[in-house]
Amino acid sequence: MIKKLFQNLSSKSVEIISICSAIILWQLIAVYIVKNQFYLPSFTDVTLAFVELWSKDAKLGLMDLDYQLPVLLVDLIYSLLHFWIGLLSALAIGIPVGMIMGWFRTIDRVVDPLIEIVRPIPPLAWIPFAIIWIGLNPLAAGFLIFIGAVFPIIINTFTGFKSVSRVYVEAAKVLGCNTDRELIRYVALPSALPSIAAGIRIAMGVGWMCLVAAEMFGVSRNGLGYKIWHHYYLHNMDLVLVYMLILGFLGLFIDRVLRYYIDGKLLKWRKGVVI
């Protein structure tokens, strides 16, 4: 067992050495060259800040819930809440819109110019309206993430539906699958799934980018993005870096889980395709 673990580690030795040397380099630069915790907190500063943060509690005051949890966990829960509100609503709206646009030419012509005009507006430009329309609550943060995530989903779903091979549609037709509904359900959707999955991945990336900005304007007193600004105002740069790293690792983690699930389960029929 231990031997196996050791073998696993040694097969990843290059990667491990790479990460370790980056950390050592960071530490050396911070301690011997910059020599200023405010400009560049060292690795050990950040680790200590993390440990300290972990022991602090905060109240989770979501709806009727009222728990004492480590403050980091509370921030995490808030951020994931904002993120999932945005992403799920982007999926719920983006996929059907992309599907209908991809399948019906007329609807594409009606909707496409509108989307092309709205799409280039940076999601952060929506902040004033998000506050005025929705108020200072998690839904407003979710709205910004929604704006960032919905367009990649629409466009990739649309492209996936546009490029459904004609021979699959015709094969389905001669096998007795004739209505638009059936053709979309049984042919176009599965055929477009790889493209839709790629769209979701891009959307999650963009949504995650929007998270910090969405929380910046204080929709709640918690959240990873909010805390970055909060600690910046307090000049706790080590804590800023802790939150930055957590955002990075969490983004990586979410992407990996999604990729594992989609490539391993939903798209296993595509193993033969070179991506």
């Binding site: 021979v167 699959y168 037709k173 001669v174 007795g176 004739n178 055929s191």
Partner: peptide, 15 residues
């Protein structure tokens, strides 16, 4: 098109 007429295409048409 109808199920009383089966068709096999030149291109690979399996889903």
């Amino acid at each position: 098109p109808g199920p009383d007429r089966g068709m096999v295409f030149q291109e690979y048409s399996l889903f």
